[in-house]
Design a protein around this nucleic acid. Sequence first.
DNA 1: ATGGCTGGTAGAACCAGA
Length: 260
Amino acid sequence: MKIASWNINSVRFRMDIVARFLKEMAPDILCLQETKAENAQFPMDALKGLGYPHIVINGQKMHHGVAILSKVPLVEDRSHDWQDNGEARHIGVRLPNGVLLENVYVPAGGDIPDREQNPKFGQKLDFLGRMIDWSSSLSEPTILTGDFNIAPLESDVWNHRQLIDVVSHTPIEVETLARLQASHNWVDLGRHFVPAPERLFTWWSYRAKDWSVSDRGRRLDHMWASPSLREQAVSHTVHEACRDWDKPSDHIPIVTEFAF
DNA sequence: ATGGCTGGTAGAACCAGA
C-alpha cells in the first residue's frame, strides 16, 4: 500500500496537478493539507471519479483544511483539535488492516520565534504539546503524516546556520519535535530511507526566482510510523518534479510504500 | 536576495503561509 502526503495550498485551485499526481503515482491513499475549502466546496465528485471513492474531510473557510482520499475503505474518521481553537488541522482514520492513519497540518508559527512577541509561535509549540499528550498514550500501530512545519535536522534545510533563528528550524521547535518523536519512539521514515546528511527537502519558497537553481529547500513534510510498523515500510520517495508542474504547490508530495 | 510570491476573500495600502 502506497500512502502519500501533500500540502496542496488550495485543492480547488490545484485540481489539475492533484489529478495528474493520482494518475501517475497511483497512491492507495493521499493525505492533503491546506485544502483551503469549506466542506461544501470540496471537489468530492471529481476526486471520487479519479478512483478514490473513500474520502474524509475536515475543512473550514479560507485557511487550513485537511483531507484523506483513498482507494480502500476508511473507518472511524475523527479529528483532534490540537490547536484548541477550532481550526481544521487534523483528520484521522483506521485502515482496513487496523492501522491508524493520522493526517496533521501543524501551524506555521508566524515570523518571530518568540512566544511573547508572536502569539502564533506559542500556539505552534502548544499544538505540539497537545500532540505529545496524545502520542504518549498511543497503544496501536499508527502512521502520523503531514506538514509538520518543522525541519528538524541540519541537513533538512539548505543552510543550518542561516536558518537557526528562522521559524521552522529554531532550537525550541526542533527540541519540541524531538519530544514528540520520543513520546512514541516514532520512526522518521524519510530519514530511515534517506539517512542524514543526504539532501532531502519537501518545500521551496515561491519567492525564489528559480527554486531548483537556488535550491533553498526545507524538509517540512514527514511520514512517521510506530516502531512496530518499521519493518513493513519498504520505500519512501519525494517527488520534486511536481514542484515544476503548472501552478505548483510550494510543497511536494511524499510517498511511503508499506508491505500491507 | 528568506522574501522578491501565492491563494482566498473582499472588493484592502487585506490575511496567512514559512
